[in-house]
């Protein structure tokens, strides 16, 4: 059985239902909208580029066991496993991966979301706060008092 998905920019993709159902949101919508399966499911926050990548990911992982719906997910308890295909999949630029994370979050494709978040974390690891700010365009909005505390932390931890 096929399911049609429509990206925010109007691209329409037809995929196997079991592939689409890796998205928790789509799976739930398919249950609710059984009578309207002829219509594309619009994904208003997911562009065509990202949707294509999400589908590519889901196609590859279509037979993987489902991840429990754990809202209090912590990768330290259940680290996301990456095979060689996943490592190749994540060879994209930062902006693309960020869009993919948003798309995975929006569609609730949890394995992809965790993979993307791990990718982002791996970028940040070992970076100084200044480097993180520069790379991700984050404003240093600490008050002087907070700055003082942070300086003390740095002094104390030698980090």
């Amino acid at each position: 059985m096929k399911v049609t998905l429509e990206s925010s920019d109007g691209q329409v993709f037809t995929v196997d239902k079991e592939v689409a159902e890796l998205s928790v949101i789509i799976k739930e919508m398919l249950v609710i909208e059984q009578a309207n399966q002829d219509h594309p499911i619009p994904l208003l926050n997911v562009g065509a580029v990202e949707l294509a990548k999400v589908i590519e990911y889901c196609e590859h992982h279509r037979n993987d066991p489902t991840i429990d719906d754990d809202e209090d997910y912590d990768s330290r308890k259940k680290p996301i496993e990456m095979d060689d295909w996943d490592k190749q999949f994540t060879i994209v630029n930062k902006e693309m991966m960020f869009e993919l994370i948003l798309a995975a979050n929006s569609m609730q494709v949890k394995p992809l979301l965790h993979l993307g978040c791990r990718y982002a974390a791996d970028i940040v690891k070992r970076m100084s706060p200044t480097e993180i700010r520069d790379l991700f365009q984050i404003d240093d909005d600490f008050t002087p008092e907070e700055q003082d505390k942070i300086e003390w932390e740095k002094q104390w931890t030698k980090l």
């Binding site: 990768s75 791996d122 690891k125 700010r133």
Partner: peptide
């Protein structure tokens, strides 16, 4: 910016820090 992410994503990213120094630096960003 990274801070444009929803909080649940930022928390997910944060949960990947297994070393205390990474978590501390992350917290010293903004």
């Amino acid at each position: 910016s990274l801070t444009d992410f929803p909080n649940e994503i930022l928390l997910n990213i944060q949960s990947n820090f297994t070393q205390p120094q990474d978590l501390l630096r992350f917290s010293q960003t903004c």
